[in-house]
């Protein structure tokens, strides 16, 4: 298993997440896809740490853990927003949330 394997895996995860974010209409699914994007980034942190010049410093896990914690908080905020949006518009379909456009 070399660094490249991990990077390819990470790129695939990134692609999946990005595709989800860009194409799906359900806000919750978009939120899931964002999580996948985070994980792709975390995988890169770990991989670069593991194959880097200084594996004893634990830089990578520290970054990854930090990102996971932040992502957890972000999900809490995000889901709260989703609930607020749902209460307001009675839908979670992004296609219907078009009040930003010119009528």
């Amino acid at each position: 298993m070399t660094l490249n394997h991990y990077l390819v895996l990470s790129a695939i995860l990134l692609g999946i997440g990005l595709l989800g974010v860009l194409t799906r209409r359900n806000i919750i699914v978009v939120l899931f896809s964002i999580e996948i994007l985070f994980n792709a980034a975390n995988l890169n942190f770990i991989a670069f740490w593991r194959f880097g010049p200084n594996p004893e410093a634990l830089m990578g896990p520290m970054f990854a853990l930090f990102a996971i914690a932040v992502a957890a908080a972000e999900v809490a905020v995000g889901l709260a927003l989703v609930i607020a949006v749902y209460r307001h518009f009675k839908t979670v379909d992004l296609e219907k949330l078009d009040t930003l456009r010119e009528p």
Partner: peptide, 17 residues
């Protein structure tokens, strides 16, 4: 220019990407 302002959020994101 107003045609770009579709109001569809993933659309904006596509441009960002």
């Amino acid at each position: 220019a107003v045609r770009f302002q579709s109001g569809f959020l993933p659309g904006y994101l596509r441009w960002v990407v």
